[in-house]
């Protein structure tokens, strides 16, 4: 009965495909730009900048209260926070995402280029 075997052959092939996928770790599908597209990316860059500045300012404010050096540490950490914010926004824009440590980010970017498929823009 050759007809009876056909669906099971198919099942066997699909099982093999599924197992292969399970083992090697399926290749990443492109994340896609999502419904917001460029607007989403713009919003994200803004958030990254803001978060860096806010955290920098917050740390500076806290240290000032502890050390009693009212305006100085906050001013310094605001600038550092701006740097961190710009760095994060730059990473987000270039699709080297959230990795802390520029080296790690660069490696990841290199890795992504090899893959050919960008994981950018989430």
């Amino acid at each position: 009965m050759p007809e009876d075997r056909t669906p099971f052959d198919d099942l066997e092939a699909r099982l093999r495909a599924a197992r292969a996928k399970q083992g090697e770790g399926a290749k990443a599908e492109p994340a896609g730009t999502g419904p917001l597209g460029g607007m989403g990316l713009g919003l994200r860059l803004g958030v990254e900048m803001m978060a860096g500045i806010a955290v920098g300012g917050g740390i500076g404010f806290g240290l000032d209260r502890v050390c009693g050096t009212r305006p100085w540490l906050m001013a310094m950490f605001l600038i550092l926070g701006l740097g961190a914010g710009v760095a994060n926004a730059w990473r987000a824009a270039h699709g080297v995402d959230e990795t802390v440590g520029l080296q790690a980010a660069r490696e990841r970017a290199g890795l992504l280029e090899d893959d050919g498929e960008g994981k950018d823009e989430r």
């Binding site: 860096g52 961190a84 760095a87 802390v100 440590g101």
Partner: peptide, 8 residues
């Protein structure tokens, strides 16, 4: 900068 970037 990296610490702030991590904390943010």
């Amino acid at each position: 900068i990296e610490v702030i970037s991590y904390l943010s």
